[in-house]
Design a protein around this nucleic acid. Structure first.
Ligand SMILES: [Zn+2]
Ligand SMILES: [Zn+2]
Ligand SMILES: [Zn+2]
Ligand SMILES: [Zn+2]
Lengths: 165, 165
DNA sequence: AATTGACATGTAATAATATTACCATTAAAT
DNA sequence: ATTTAATGGTAATATTATTACATGTCAATT
């Protein structure tokens, strides 16, 4: 209902390059990076790691956007749908895409301590899976290729993985 | 109409071979296939496809076991932990392992229509991912390799995949 | 300018999935 | 028999996600 005021989240210097590029890319497809969507993308980009839909929602609400789950899920789904973000099923969270614009299939390395995500190009992995599936008579539509473990920074913290999946 | 000596979940004829093997395997590891766990495994084996924890729970409760979520989650976690079942993160569901006993890394082909699951051996896929991760300084602990799409039976039913992930 | 229609946003309510905490019971070990 | 660890039960709560419906925005057409 309310029109969000000038965002103070480092906005004085204008939108980051990632945001600008996203806008250009979307306009070229006849799509719009509306305020909620733009702010949602900013939130993902500002985050140090993957974040959950409800974390995104809380930030959106704090910025004057709607406070009900569909507000966040719609924006997140839009970004995922159009290649600007990814959904991580292992941890029910979202992260900004590292290679927006490029058509790509990715695999994700998710640190279980800091939740930072590294996005690998995984066209070859996916292709193998698609072919194995095809040999089994299965027509692949979507894939999830995700690993959890420890990022370089978090290794050597001797944190047990007992009970972690 | 009914075969009087055969019970509804096949109990009169003794446990299925999968159950017997599971029991042997667990005992060899000093673990127990308790009644809830056994019934949970049976439920997964009887299911035609992946099923959710709450579906499992409802069946357990109907058989006289506890009716609260931890009853199902504990049994499912135990089975997953010991290689008798798998958790499918794309659809928040569980399925009996097709290759119990064998140490293996699998990829899963999940039909979005009938929810049947095909389990592929994916040691090579996983190894590639682990190596790519290692090259990026990431130490993999767990992986999820899942695809959704259409199984052989469900192809040709011209069911749109719009809005499906 | 008014009408239309597609898209976008907002809310309330509810559904679906999962965990924590605590206690009782049972099986194993001493 | 006593102790201990593992298991199972329940209540309460947390977390994640969807449905349904009303309102608002905007650009194309009349
Ligand atoms: Zn990406
Ligand atoms: Zn880390
Ligand atoms: Zn398996
Ligand atoms: Zn199918």
């Amino acid at each position: 209902m309310s029109k969000p005021l000038e965002s103070d989240h480092g906005a004085q210097v204008g939108p980051g390059p990632a945001i600008s590029r996203a806008e250009v890319q979307l306009r070229a497809q006849g799509l719009r990076l509306t305020p909620v969507r733009r702010r949602t993308l900013e939130i993902l980009l500002e985050a140090s790691g993957a974040i959950g839909a409800y974390d995104v929602l809380a930030r959106l609400a704090a910025d004057g956007f709607g406070s009900q789950p569909p507000v966040a899920y719609r924006a997140l789904d839009f970004l995922v749908e159009h290649g600007l973000a990814h959904r991580l099923r292992r941890i029910n969270a979202f992260t900004a895409c590292s290679h927006p614009g490029e058509t790509h299939h990715a695999a994700f390395l998710i640190c279980r301590i800091c939740r930072r995500v590294d996005e690998l190009h995984a066209g070859h992995l996916r292709q193998m899976l698609v072919q194995d599936a095809h040999a089994a008579g299965f027509a692949v539509e979507r894939t999830s290729l995700e690993a959890s473990g420890l990022c370089a920074d978090c290794q050597g913290q001797d944190v047990s993985d007992e009970g972690v999946e």
